[in-house]
Each structure stands twice: as C-alpha cells, then as structure tokens.
Amino acid sequence: MAEAGAYLRLAAAWFRSAAQYPLSLALLTLSQVGAAMSSVLAIVFVFGHARVLSGFDLGDVLFLYALSGLAFGLADFAFGSVEQLGTHIRTGTLDTMLVRPVSVLVQIAVDRFSPRRLGKVVPAAITLCYALPRLDTDWTPARIAMVPATVLCGAAICTAIWILGASLQFYVTEAREAANSVTYGGSALTEYPLSIYGQDVMRVVTFVVPLAFVNWQPALFILDRPDPLGLPEWVRFAAPAVAVALLACAALVWRTGMRRYASTGS
C-alpha cells in the first residue's frame, strides 16, 4: 500500500505544520468537539422530555449516535477534505497535484491534515464508552465483536459516500453543498433510530444511500430488536459487504472523474 504510506508521511508533515500555531489549533479542535457535543446535548435535552422514542431510550440513542459519530468522524478525519475537490479544480491546484508523484486522492485527502479533525471523533468515542454499559442487552461474544466491526464498516461506508459526493464535482464544480446534504445530512439522520423517520425514508437509506448499514442494522442485532421493515436477519450482518461494494463503486467513479479531467482539463 504505497498510497497509505504516502498518506502517513504527508499527514505527519501537515501535523507538524499545524502544531506551530497551538492556540489556533486548540480553538479549532475545540469547535469540532463542541459541534459533536451539541449533538449529544440535543439528544439529552430531547430525552429530558420524552423517556422513549419509538421504543428506544436515551442509552440506546446515545449508542446509535456514538456509532454514527465515530463512523462519520473517522471518515471525515481521514478523507473529509476530498469535498474540496471543486475548489482545487477552480483554483488550479489540482493541476499542481497531478504533476506530483502521489495519488491525487491521497493528496486531496491529506491536504491541511490537522489533529483538529479528531475533534469529532473523541466525543463520539466518549459517548460510546458511556452508552455501552447502559445498554440492556445480552452481551454474547458475537455482539461484542459487532461493535468494533460496525465502527470499521461504518467508517468505510462514510468514506465511500464522501468520495462519491466529491466525484460529482468533476462534473459540476459547485456540487459540494449538494453532496453535503448527503454526508452531513446522513450524519444527522443516523443519530436517531431510523424507525422515527417512517418506512419510506428507511427504504431509501437501506437501498439507495445505504446509511442504514452505518449503525442501524448492526445495532438492531446488538440491541436485539425487530426490524421495522421486516428485512431478513442476515441484513444485519451485511455491513462489510455493503462497505466493500460501495468503496469499489467510489473508486470507479473517482477514476472515471479523473480520466474525464485529463481529457477535458476542466
């Protein structure tokens, strides 16, 4: 994995650069932590009024939030800046990246890499540690193993969605905000049990934009709840397959976009 090596080497260099402005770094990290915390607070405030939302209590929802927050946070941590693709095309920095011996995807993803990107991950991790012991479930080895597997697959799915969204900008340079409605919108959507959105939304996020596999389907297994859509049991274990398929799709679309750029220069 030459790409992974390049990513790490460059991330280290960006990290050292960011560390030269500790105050700015601290404020920026804090704002990321704050953004994640405001989601947690909103959940806590909501449950201050309702004890149970469509069969899920505060602990369950915090658990769902933590899985979603970790998945989106990790994807954003490693690949979030691919959403800047349109800017790189407009300002010509993409051409600069093309004359360097490192994959463009790695260069864009690692651009301005800073530990502040962890700001979203840490509150989610703390929330997970808080929620896990409060879950009312029978902790079999399979359920225990499912927790880290879900985080991993969720992060992969979110990364793929992020790259797919960014690839749109090869065709429409202003597509960034539209893609945000899926990435950030998806992150907001998966903070709560999908059952509150009704069957139509659940079908869309299962079969069209497979956000249901980021946390919902695996969580149904961990929490041992019935699937409101009545999907078969095995769907709860489909996250790895969905992640692989989506990543392959993202790689294909990205490559197609790059080829198009090389033939049109715009």
């Binding site: 009024h49 309702a50 202003e174 597509a175 905000e177 409605s181 959507l189 959105y197």
Partner: peptide, 30 residues
C-alpha cells in the same frame, strides 16, 4: 450563485426533514 442556492435549498430541506421527524416523535410522546 444559482447552483449554490439550489444546493442550499436541498441541504436546508434535508436537515429540516430530519429535525421534523425527530420533533414529531417527541411530540407524539409528549
């Protein structure tokens, strides 16, 4: 900025829908 405006409407609508569903669930309970 027509494309940005359209994208803004989309993003705001998506977030609006998510919040609306959450609040509907809250008001169902309370």
């Amino acid at each position: 900025y027509r494309a940005a405006t359209a994208a803004g409407i989309l993003t705001n609508s998506v977030f609006g829908c998510v919040s609306a569903f959450v609040l509907i669930a809250v008001w169902e309970a309370r």
